[in-house]
């Protein structure tokens, strides 16, 4: 884990740098000395099975609670010491649905803009732009309840982009979506990376969402088992198939290999 990547080497500064974070609920360690990076202009897949600690890590990055050890920096701002600076630079799509079903798409977006201190007229402009980017400008006045699951997710992405973040966090965003919606969502997020240079941390347990150019962080039982490019993961797991490579890497840790060979 090259958590100490200097920015002097011509590399863009990482959007997100997590260093040595351990977090426990009671005696159980949910995260154990986790270090990872999500560079800007890149898609970083945080791959782990259910219970690997992905959601806990997201809670720490979004400062639902503080990390007690290590550090989490967003664009150079420590989440614990400069929470306002850090939070204003990240957009989040949570695993659970977080839109108000009874309100319209636009009302949901305006509420979020207000939470970021964006005034009404600027918010309306930003919301219209964000909606057109996810192809939903025609649904602005519709109630969220009338949207499909995939459309709701896209609204959530539009919402996360509203305040112009440099880091986009998505916690298993494709949960419950059909194949078409999944593909569309991935395409949209990848386009954002290309167009805006935004850094993306995409948590998933589905390895087929990973592409060759992506960075991968393999999280298992609260520990980072491997991280690097897709090529490095393949080499590490001694398999051309990323899924198989991932399973072999986490299989070094336990005997789950045969059970979860899906």
């Amino acid at each position: 884990m090259n958590a100490d990547t200097p920015t002097s080497a011509g590399l863009p500064e990482a959007s997100l740098v997590v260093k040595g974070v351990t977090h426990a609920f009671g005696p159980k360690k949910a995260l154990d000395d986790v270090s990872l990076e999500a560079p800007s202009s890149a898609f970083t897949a945080l791959v782990g099975q259910n219970g690997a600690g992905k959601t806990t890590l997201f809670s720490l990055i979004t400062r639902l609670y503080d990390n007690r050890s290590g550090s989490i920096r967003v664009l150079g701002h420590d989440v614990r010491r400069q929470p306002a600076e850090a939070l204003s630079r990240m957009g989040v799509v949570f695993q659970s649905r977080t839109l108000d079903l009874e309100l319209s798409v636009m009302q949901n977006l305006l509420y979020h803009a207000a939470l970021h201190g964006i005034g009404r007229s600027a918010a309306k402009r930003a919301a219209a732009t964000a909606l057109s980017r996810v192809g939903l400008e025609s649904r602005a006045k519709d109630r969220v309840r009338a949207l499909s699951g995939g459309q709701m997710r896209r609204v959530e992405i539009a919402r996360a982009l509203l305040h112009g973040p440099s880091l986009l966090l998505l916690d298993e965003p494709t949960t419950g979506l059909d194949i078409g919606s999944r593909r569309q969502l991935l395409e949209e997020v990848r386009r954002l990376i290309a167009e805006d240079g935004i850094g993306v941390l995409w948590a998933t347990h589905l390895v087929d969402e990973i592409e060759v150019a992506d960075r991968v962080v393999a999280l298992h039982k609260g520990r980072v088992m491997a991280s690097g490019s897709v090529g490095e993961i393949r080499a590490r797991g001694k398999s051309e198939d990323v899924g198989a490579a991932f399973l072999r890497i986490i299989g070094e840790d336990d005997e789950a290999l045969s059970r979860v060979s899906a």
Partner: peptide
């Protein structure tokens, strides 16, 4: 929608923003 809306960020959280 540019990424560099750091100015809109409440680094200097204004009374208006509150």
């Amino acid at each position: 929608m540019s990424v560099t809306t750091g100015s809109a960020a409440p680094g200097g959280v204004s009374a208006r923003g509150y």
